[in-house]
């Protein structure tokens, strides 16, 4: 019996190791690509032992000005995330706890989430061009906000629904204004939800590609645009792609690990109600 249990546990462990390796392989390969000579990336069978170098990193920083793209990504993503949370939190609170015609509004805002970006990117381009706002941070920030706001409102609404309405009513009876209830009672209680929502919208804005591609030129292009440029008509810069991909994915991965418990909470919210 003991031997059977040990064997079973070992098999399960092995299975999980296998699954982990399977899932981690693309990321591992990407990291290796960033530190390898291109010939080591292309060789068949694949070469796992190689002489690491920083040529890909040197190339992206000294030749392509990748730091400019990274800074743009940080500015746009952080601004959009802050704006989304600042807008979505009161909206979600109002839709949950105040007597509003929320249901219709909730359905309406979902439409913005359902429209594929590619269907509206050209109209957005023309409007931005007419307003002289092409290639600016704020046009990206506004569009990222508009596209992620419905998701943020829906997600935050689930968190606000977990807070008992009696809390609000008691505070109101004690003389709190609606703004004070929201700021002093509801927001602290929903802090976990705010962080979880922030993580999701941060990741979505950080990885956004289509609008950044069409609406930016030399001033505000973001990091994912730079990666595309490493595949050219005269060859693919494998080292540069690996190095840039590593730099782009690292903040998201670190952020996701740090906020892991909120992320899981956000994903499972509403599943046991």
């Amino acid at each position: 019996m003991y031997r059977y249990r040990t064997l079973r546990r070992s098999l399960v462990t092995l299975l999980w190791i296998g699954v982990s390796l399977f899932y981690l392989f693309p990321y591992t390969w990407m990291v290796m690509t960033g530190f390898r000579n291109p010939i080591d990336t292309l060789t068949m069978p694949p070469r796992f032992i190689f002489q690491p170098n920083l040529e890909g990193f040197r190339y992206i920083f000294t030749t392509t000005g990748f730091q400019h793209y990274l800074v743009n990504s940080i500015i746009v993503t952080v601004s959009a995330t802050v704006l989304i949370i600042a807008t979505a939190a009161p909206a979600a609170y109002a839709l949950t706890h105040l007597k509003t015609r929320g249901r219709a509004f909730l359905l309406v805002i979902l439409v913005a989430r359902m429209v594929p970006g590619v269907a509206v990117v050209i109209p957005f381009y023309l409007v931005a061009a007419k307003l002289g706002q092409l290639d600016t941070y704020h046009v990206l920030i506004l569009i990222f906000t508009a596209f992620n706001l419905p998701f943020a409102i829906w997600l935050l609404r689930s968190f606000f629904r977990e807070i008992h309405p009696e809390l609000r009513e008691a505070a109101i009876m004690d003389g709190c204004s609606e703004l004070r209830v929201f700021g002093r009672i509801m927001l602290p209680l929903a802090a976990g939800g705010l962080v979880a929502t922030g993580v999701f919208v941060f990741i979505a804005a950080w990885n956004e590609f289509l609008f950044a591609l069409v609406l930016t030129n030399s001033q505000a292009p973001t990091a994912p645009i730079a990666i595309l440029g490493f595949r050219t008509e005269y060859g693919t810069q494998w080292g540069a792609i690996g190095a840039a991909a590593l730099l782009i994915s690292t903040p998201v991965i670190v952020f996701a690990i740090v906020m892991q418990k909120y992320l899981v909470r956000g994903l499972t919210m509403g599943s046991i109600r």
């Binding site: 392509t64 092409l134 069409v214 292009p221 595309l228």
Partner: peptide, 24 residues
């Protein structure tokens, strides 16, 4: 000021800019 775009995207970017009247 250089706008460096991937070869596969230059045509769309250029045509959109010219035909859209943006002239960036």
């Amino acid at each position: 000021q250089y706008t460096r775009v991937a070869p596969g995207d230059q045509y769309q970017k250029l045509m959109l800019d010219l035909t859209g009247g943006t002239h960036s």
